[in-house]
Design a protein around this nucleic acid. Structure first.
Lengths: 218, 218
DNA sequence: TAGATTGTTAATCGATTAACAATC
DNA sequence: TAGATTGTTAATCGATTAACAATC
């Protein structure tokens, strides 16, 4: 439902998704005073094969590693952050200031992923005009206009399923090209727009299948 | 970081993850009064190839479809729900009653995915003893004991990154075999435990890479 | 030099797609 | 019967793994 992407140096989608974990670990190692790291250390930490870790690092690291010593941690951090787009901040708006929306607005960790939630929208009159974590909540009918004016390219959808497609259309109309969708519905968008689904139903399905299997075994 | 799984009738992990979307659509069609549906209708709705939709349905549908008419919607719904484990409810506990944790506890939609959050845990004395959406918040040091006593097999982790591994270990000690992890860290678990990461950093990475590319194009 | 570690090229494995036969 | 649609078997494509050469 979201086709794969050919990224720069032959990085697979899955490899890209492993990168944030590597990044986190590398930062911790750097803090501990380490300068160099072999691919095998990452493999051990994340339960991956050494080959995979090595290939992942090789495909992201500009300078490559050195036999015997490994990779320069600082370079790796730099390269991964650049690759993932975490080095410069993108502005985003959020639509749907309910429980989940407020939770996301209040979360401090997005800054290190290069995301800044500028403002929110909601259709409830009660919420419009209020602030959450210092961010203004605007009326939902202003989405397109304000997105365009603020030059925002990322939209976060945390409305109930029923309203998600309409909100999505408005975001796209406002110039948004990347949508982070928490609503449990499939969104239909033009070619140039990417939807990243936080697909909770799918996660739960995987979990409950696993639990079934495990319990069956006992 | 979480290897694929060989499911019953050769259903790929990806196919399983598409199922919740199919399910949603099929239910809507049933409500509209439709009885039968061809695979091509799903393909059109979700922007998939007809072949893929057909194969997905074929691999999940016990009775198979009929040439000319298609698949019986009611049967499909049944088969998919059974496959995904949505038909019988699993109890879960949640650890970390912060913004996100409360949002999940307040969300009404999990019932249709067969998930019931029984109770929560938190390490803050302020929260212990309180209720969120009618669910009790217990002290974090009771996790293992209560999980075992309540026979809970699914744990939801919504604590900050630093505490996630400890919480995870306690859940596993309490008999949990499926963990839904919202903390932005890799969790190390025994073989029989499955971790489903709600990997927000990865989602954001994909989005920001896409936005970069799109903006570069203009 | 020997050994650890990277880098590269080929092999395997799994998922998707294509071609075509079967059926109502 | 003709045509729509499913089901099956083979081909392609992409990601992971394996084997081995290169390098410090």
């Amino acid at each position: 439902m979201n086709a794969g992407d050919k990224n720069g140096r032959g990085l697979s989608v899955q490899a890209v998704q492993r990168m944030p974990y590597y990044l986190d670990f590398l930062k911790k190692q750097l803090e501990k005073g380490a300068k160099l790291i072999p691919a095998s250390a990452l493999a051990a930490e994340f339960n991956l094969s050494e080959i995979q870790a090595r290939k992942d690092l090789a495909s992201v690291c500009k300078n490559g590693g050195r036999p015997r010593t490994g990779f320069v941690i600082e370079d790796l951090i730099n390269d991964i952050e650049t690759l993932l787009g975490f080095r410069d901040t993108s502005n985003a708006v959020l639509v749907g200031a309910g429980h989940l929306g407020q939770a996301l607005m209040s979360y401090g960790g997005f800054a290190s992923y290069g995301l800044n939630i500028l403002a929110a929208f909601d259709s409830s009159e009660k919420k419009v005009g209020s602030q959450v974590n210092g961010k203004q909540v605007f009326a939902a009918d202003k989405i397109s206009e304000l997105c365009r004016r603020m030059n925002v390219h990322i939209g976060i959808i945390t409305v109930p399923a029923g309203g998600a497609q309409i909100v999505c259309d408005q975001l796209v109309a406002g110039g948004v090209v990347g949508i982070w969708n928490f609503a449990p519905v499939y969104l239909s968008v033009p070619e140039h727009v990417m939807v990243q689904n936080e697909n909770m139903a799918a996660s739960l399905a995987m979990l409950s299948k696993h639990v079934q299997k495990q319990m069956g075994r006992v």
